[in-house]
Amino acid sequence: MLELIDATKTYVQGRRTVNAVRGVSLQITGGEFVTIMGPSGSGKSTLMHLMGALDTPSTGRAVFQGQDLQTMSDRQRSLLRRDRIGFVFQAFNLLPTLTGAENVALPLLLGGMARRAALDRGRECLTKVNMGHRADHFPDEMSGGEMQRVAVARALVADPEAVLCDEPTGNLDTATSREILSLLAALPEPGRRAVVMVTHDPSAAAYGTRLVQIRDGLVEADGPVCGTEGRGD
């Protein structure tokens, strides 16, 4: 489903060159919940951006469902992100002037779906994440955990093949983090949907089924998650 093949990413910052990713090869299949863990500056968020078509490799390849992302136009990558990949970010990224239902329905509205149908679908997705009662509320009327549940619903509204999460619990307390992580752990679908989560927190990483550890832009370790301490089992 998602694949990086000897991918590198280099940024130029003034006179300094930053090698954020240095020759990473990584394959993720449908049904996996892969957590990518590493210290700040290790390149883990850059990896997610490459897999999610938010950026393209400097060298090497990034592939989604057999499509080389570098051969696609900016518009094609934008449509891919809108229709086939869901994103959940640390900062929620909800529009303050839209209700919960409108925030969730936004990708569908941008895709041309009729407003009533899009809002109905948005409300369905909110109900799935136990936020149906907040459909008509604005983000400033919600707690951090509620806003992140709305963000998860928005990521699911187009029924994507992959959900990519960048530090989704970074702004949440411990109890709320566990609720969001349990919700994310239920999203993978065998043979179809994969979930990839970037985190620096070992207890959050333990919710995945596979752990990829990144350091200095390289894969340091890749294997099944051991133990269940993160899940509270």
Score class of each variant (00 low, 15 high):
residue 1 M to N: 02
residue 3 E to S: 07
residue 4 L to M: 07
residue 5 I to H: 02
residue 7 A to R: 06
residue 10 T to G: 00
residue 11 Y to H: 13
residue 11 Y to P: 02
residue 17 T to C: 00
residue 19 N to C: 00
residue 23 G to L: 08
residue 23 G to V: 04
residue 26 L to I: 00
residue 26 L to C: 00
residue 27 Q to V: 03
residue 29 T to E: 12
residue 30 G to K: 06
residue 32 E to S: 02
residue 32 E to Y: 02
residue 34 V to A: 05
residue 38 G to H: 06
residue 38 G to P: 02
residue 40 S to Q: 03
residue 45 S to I: 03
residue 47 L to E: 01
residue 56 T to H: 03
residue 57 P to L: 07
residue 58 S to G: 03
residue 58 S to A: 04
residue 58 S to H: 02
residue 60 G to H: 06
residue 60 G to L: 09
residue 61 R to T: 01
residue 63 V to T: 01
residue 64 F to D: 01
residue 65 Q to F: 01
residue 66 G to Y: 10
residue 66 G to D: 10
residue 69 L to C: 02
residue 71 T to N: 12
residue 72 M to A: 08
residue 73 S to C: 05
residue 75 R to A: 10
residue 80 L to E: 05
residue 81 R to E: 10
residue 81 R to W: 09
residue 84 R to L: 09
residue 88 V to S: 08
residue 88 V to N: 08
residue 89 F to H: 08
residue 91 A to I: 01
residue 95 L to P: 01
residue 97 T to E: 15
residue 98 L to P: 03
residue 99 T to V: 10
residue 100 G to V: 09
residue 104 V to W: 04
residue 110 L to V: 14
residue 111 G to W: 12
residue 111 G to A: 15
residue 114 A to P: 10
residue 114 A to W: 07
residue 117 A to I: 10
residue 123 R to F: 07
residue 124 E to Q: 14
residue 125 C to A: 12
residue 126 L to N: 05
residue 127 T to W: 04
residue 128 K to Q: 15
residue 129 V to W: 08
residue 130 N to P: 00
residue 131 M to K: 01
residue 132 G to I: 06
residue 132 G to Y: 10
residue 143 S to C: 10
residue 145 G to N: 12
residue 146 E to C: 09
residue 146 E to M: 11
residue 147 M to T: 00
residue 149 R to K: 12
residue 150 V to N: 09
residue 152 V to S: 08
residue 153 A to N: 08
residue 154 R to G: 05
residue 158 A to V: 06
residue 159 D to Q: 14
residue 163 V to S: 07
residue 163 V to G: 04
residue 165 C to W: 07
residue 165 C to I: 10
residue 171 N to D: 11
residue 172 L to H: 08
residue 173 D to G: 14
residue 174 T to S: 15
residue 177 S to H: 10
residue 179 E to H: 10
residue 180 I to C: 10
residue 181 L to A: 11
residue 183 L to C: 12
residue 185 A to W: 06
residue 185 A to L: 07
residue 186 A to I: 02
residue 189 E to M: 14
residue 189 E to F: 03
residue 191 G to C: 11
residue 199 T to P: 05
residue 200 H to Y: 09
residue 200 H to F: 12
residue 203 S to H: 13
residue 203 S to R: 14
residue 206 A to W: 04
residue 208 G to Y: 04
residue 208 G to T: 05
residue 209 T to S: 15
residue 209 T to L: 08
residue 212 V to E: 05
residue 213 Q to N: 07
residue 213 Q to S: 15
residue 221 A to D: 15
residue 223 G to W: 12
residue 223 G to T: 11
residue 225 V to T: 09
residue 229 E to M: 13
residue 232 G to N: 14
